[in-house]
Amino acid sequence: MTSSVTGGCPLALVILLLMSMDPIATEVVNSVNDCTEFFLDGTPPDIPGVLQQGTIQDQNRYKPICQEYENTRRFMTLYDTVNKIPVFSAYKYTGDDGSKRPRNQKWIKKYSKQASFSDYTHQTDYDRGHIFPSAHAHHKSDKEATFTLTNIVPQSRTFNNGSWKSMEKCVRCVMHEYCLNQNNQHEAFVVTGAIPNANKTLKNKVNIPKTLWTAFCCYSKVTGEWLASAHWGDNVKENPRAKILMET
């Protein structure tokens, strides 16, 4: 696991460097620009060969989805219909009301070109790894909204429950402590995604990403400046005793 923390808020640059359903609805929209409320200043990241200056390079393959739950937009996903995994999910961290992770949550399939629940069954090495983690969602409905098949990738179980889980917890603590806007409300813009593997799939269908990455930025009333942080790690089996986050 590798991490980077910077001043300022160059989310697009950070991500560019990183890359070199019953009540749940998937609102497939025409453009990423139709669902910009989850991006800082309404500006989506640049993903080489995928998304540049808000324009999807292959509109037949990559589909922008405004993720809805109980008639409310909760986050945004750019979905790869060939690899059947998200390119990224974008969301806002707005604090945590203390509600627990939903148990026995039903995974809903609403989009015809996505992976299916059966693609992830009978797996011992890979979890259904959230891209937008429920632990970063504000309240019960937000947490439930993350349990959609367009928001997950096959993630190595030891990686998911090891350094990646530790990183998510640490980032949440940082955002909760420092990401307070001028109205004294928690607010951070987060983009988390996956880099596909050239030749590794689950059940010869769903791409098993080689790397997961995440970046956030926020204004900190606490420090009086903009903060940004990025983390990435290889989606491989880990030694459970080696849950260490390395910083660069």
Rank of each mutant, 00 (worst) to 15 (best):
K140I: 15
K140W: 06
K140M: 15
S141L: 12
S141I: 13
S141E: 08
D142Q: 03
D142I: 07
D142A: 10
K143L: 04
K143D: 07
K143A: 06
K143S: 09
K143T: 10
K143Q: 15
E144C: 07
E144K: 15
E144M: 02
E144D: 13
A145L: 09
A145D: 02
T146Y: 01
T146P: 05
F147L: 10
F147H: 11
F147V: 10
F147M: 09
L149C: 03
L149A: 06
T150M: 03
T150R: 00
T150P: 00
N151Y: 04
I152Y: 00
I152L: 06
V153E: 00
V153Q: 00
P154M: 07
Q155V: 03
Q155S: 01
S156V: 13
S156N: 15
S156C: 14
S156Q: 07
R157V: 08
R157H: 09
T158S: 10
T158K: 06
F159L: 07
N160C: 09
N160M: 09
N161W: 01
N161R: 14
N161Q: 08
G162M: 03
S163R: 04
S163C: 03
W164G: 02
W164L: 04
W164I: 00
W164V: 06
K165M: 06
K165Q: 11
S166N: 11
S166M: 14
M167S: 05
M167V: 12
K169W: 06
K169V: 09
K169R: 15
V171Y: 07
V171A: 14
V171Q: 11
V171H: 02
R172W: 04
R172Q: 07
C173A: 13
C173L: 08
C173D: 06
M175F: 12
M175G: 13
M175Y: 10
M175V: 06
H176P: 02
E177M: 09
Y178T: 10
Y178C: 07
L180I: 13
N181P: 15
N181L: 13
Q182S: 14
Q182C: 03
N184L: 12
Q185G: 10
Q185R: 15
H186F: 07
E187D: 08
E187M: 10
E187K: 00
A188F: 02
A188M: 07
A188S: 12
A188G: 12
F189V: 06
F189H: 13
V190A: 05
V191C: 08
V191G: 05
V191N: 01
T192M: 06
T192Q: 04
G193Q: 11
G193N: 13
A194K: 03
A194R: 00
A194F: 00
A194D: 01
I195E: 02
P196W: 07
P196K: 14
P196R: 14
N197W: 01
N197Y: 01
N197Q: 05
N197R: 03
